[in-house]
């Protein structure tokens, strides 16, 4: 298994703030690695270090067997496709003009028609960039990354702010790239996205990787558990809930309660019985099996999307 991306002990400080505090990453060719974490966790800085936009203060980076600053930077750039956050690619330009420009930078690559087709922008190819929807703009950004037919694709929060349909459409393009043997490194704070696209996930928080594995491994790491969530007007006696058989933890936030317990139905019944004994009327009671969201919550005690206002709940 050859590595497309290998970095060791990556450290980057901005002034006194440590943005990345010793990150190791390995991505095999043809794999998709997801860097998962809340805003400000160091995801973007990590990717931008890999892309050669910043110089790391410490650590080493190897991409496709090459390193930055050894005189082969342009050769390396020929083989990378990059999509950055919040780039305005040229308001006054038409879609195909933007794409043509990016194509001209690469020695080899795909034909414009092929790329437009892939990202589903054929119909708007003569439209000005600023008239496009958010989803279309993101697809232009993706097209610009794909037009050089890269070996590695870096995507930094590719679907932030998109509606579910636009998100799915973008995922399909990434999956197609993967299926053709491409390597992907993507950052996201959407669990769903990581679960859908990534072979492996590294969870990053405060500049450090706090867990890694396949999505299934990470979820299984929590044990055979389920989560019960409800809201109530009356205060609940949390201590008595915690003493119940099979209850591993109880977390509360304002009037919301969340219990982690074993998967057996009897254990759930025990919780409900206790609530009724306390004369608590739970509102919006829900149970679900562990997801990556729960993994993150369990690891850090904070919600992944807490900083953001997510459009949809993580459990479904």
């Amino acid at each position: 298994m050859t590595l497309a991306i290998a970095c060791r002990g990556l450290v980057k400080r901005f002034g006194t703030k440590v943005a990345v505090g010793g990150v190791d990453l390995d991505v095999a060719r043809g794999q998709c690695l997801g860097l998962l974490g809340p805003n400000g966790a160091g995801k973007t800085t990590t990717v931008e270090l890999l892309e050669g936009l910043h110089q790391p203060d410490e650590g080493s980076i190897e991409l496709l067997g090459m390193r930055w600053g050894e005189g082969r930077d342009r050769d390396l750039r020929q083989r990378l496709g990059v999509q950055l956050q919040e780039t305005t690619l040229g308001d006054k330009l038409e879609v195909w003009e933007v794409l043509r420009l990016f194509r001209s930078f690469q020695e080899r690559g795909r034909s414009l028609d092929d790329v437009l087709q892939r990202v589903g922008l054929v119909d708007v190819r003569r439209q000005r960039y600023h008239t496009l929807s958010g989803g279309q703009k993101q697809r232009v950004a993706l097209a610009c990354a794909l037009v050089g037919d890269p070996d590695i694709l870096f995507l930094d929060e590719p679907t932030t702010g998109l509606d579910p349909r636009a998100r799915q459409a973008l995922w399909a393009v990434v999956e197609q790239f993967r299926a053709a043997g491409g390597t992907v490194l993507l950052t996201t704070h959407y669990m769903e996205e990581a679960a859908a696209l990534c072979d492996r996930i590294a969870i990053i928080d405060q500049g450090k990787i706090i867990a890694r594995g396949t999505p299934a491994e990470l979820v299984d790491g929590l044990g055979r558990v389920q989560f019960v969530e409800f809201e109530t007007q009356r205060a609940v006696d949390v201590a008595r809930l915690q003493q119940l058989d099979g209850v591993q933890s109880v977390t509360t936030r304002e009037s919301k309660y969340r219990l982690c317990l074993g998967r057996d139905l009897e254990l759930l019944a025990g919780v409900l019985l206790e609530l009724s004994r306390q004369r608590v009327v739970p509102l919006g009671l829900s149970t679900h099996q562990a997801t990556l969201d729960d993994v993150f919550l369990q690891l850090t005690g904070r919600g992944l999307e807490a900083a953001e206002a997510p459009a949809e709940g993580a459990s479904s």
């Binding site: 936009l53 750039r77 990378l80 780039t87 305005t88 040229g90 930078f105 690469q106």
Partner: peptide, 14 residues
């Protein structure tokens, strides 16, 4: 300001 320069900087553009 539009972060277009850094986008160009990660391409093979001279």
């Amino acid at each position: 300001k539009r972060k277009l320069l850094r986008r160009f900087a990660v391409t093979a553009m001279r």
